[in-house]
Design a protein around this nucleic acid. Structure first.
Lengths: 195, 195
DNA sequence: ACTTATTATGTACAAATGTACATAATATTA
DNA sequence: TAATATTATGTACATTTGTACATAATAAGT
């Protein structure tokens, strides 16, 4: 029911995606001119079909390309099985890292890591860490904590002596709070730009 | 020039951000009803000001909240200096991982890593790797390559014996192509969801 | 207190918009 | 070939849209 589009409909939709990616569709008149049609009803007819089949979605009086068709192409992890899958651009799903990490949530923020105290869990200098604000954390969570008035990203732990923070790097000692330790938030994602 | 908004204007803008985040603004009439005004000219007046000051931008006949005010709050890396900065939500910049990694580029795609052959460079099982398609890579780049008809993510290297692929895990041996080695793309980003 | 901006509301109107209806050309299917 | 679906174009029209103009009420600055 989803993919039974004619060639022309597919072409039309792909052009829409290219031109109006994650923007609201403009008026039929404008699309008409942009695409070289002579009647805005041609556009209406296409849009109607694409809307019914779920390729376009309505939101706040505006039409958008459905989020399934935005974001990066997410290729299945069993790439090995045969690379025809990527070649053919037979894409399973689309992904958005912003959505994945809930970046737009007001209680979520991002900061850039400095230092190598967490390399053993794959957090490197320069990585972006997405933090979700919360006062409570589970032991074992990677947290952004405030220890003795300093911010630090460490693993939240507890032993018989009490709460402490563990750097994930054998060369660093664990941190036991002298005065105070409070949780600012929990790490929910790591993002690294290479090159 | 950017932040000289009155309290009401700020409130209005923040409400806009909340409700129409990364969507095109609907008509004044709709915003009017949504926000409880009685004249759509109230909306027009606010929008006019916000547009002039760069908080709203026009695109394809539609208005959007400027991208500066979308995405996650990016806190400066020198968080240590004093945590008032986060507390006050005195945010420097906004960030979008989708933009950062160029996820929407047609020649870019994402796949999920399986295996631990790259843990030494902080790429773990389950991480998302963003790949930019290209046939050429520099030695030292992390590439998605096709060796003897199999896809694999490794570091691209060369020595006196020729080209080879290096797993970034001491427990794995290097891979020398028996028949063929071709580059499919270069890793441009790593994204990990925690929890 | 006086003066000036900001804010809220209203009216009027030309232009643009979506939709309905109609028609013919072209593909597709039976 | 006949019958049906898709595609392209056009006309007509009520509704909606943005804008201009006008007026108070409120807030801010002097």
């Amino acid at each position: 029911m989803k993919n039974d589009l004619t060639e022309r409909q597919k072409d039309f939709f792909e052009k829409l995606c290219m031109v109006f990616k994650q923007k609201a569709l403009p008026s039929y008149e404008i699309i008409k001119n942009e695409f070289g049609y002579k009647s805005k009803n041609s556009i209406k007819q296409y849009v109607e079909i694409l809307k019914n089949k779920g390729f376009l979605v309505q939101e706040n009086e505006n039409l958008y390309v459905s989020s399934e068709y935005l974001g990066a192409k997410l290729v299945s992890s069993y790439v090995k099985a045969g690379f025809a899958s990527i070649m053919d651009d037979k894409i399973e799903k689309r992904i958005s890292f912003d959505l994945l990490l809930g970046i737009n949530n007001p209680s979520t923020f991002v900061f850039k890591v400095s230092g190598d105290s967490m390399v053993d869990v794959g957090i490197f200098d320069g990585d972006y860490v997405t933090i979700k604000k919360t006062q409570v954390a589970n032991f074992g969570d990677i947290v952004l904590a405030i220890v003795d008035n300093e911010f630090t990203l460490k693993t939240y732990k507890k032993d018989e002596k009490g709460l402490y923070l563990k750097p994930e790097n054998k060369e660093y000692p664990i941190i036991r709070p002298k005065n105070s330790l409070s949780i600012f938030g929990v790490a929910v994602g790591i993002t690294r730009k290479i090159g």
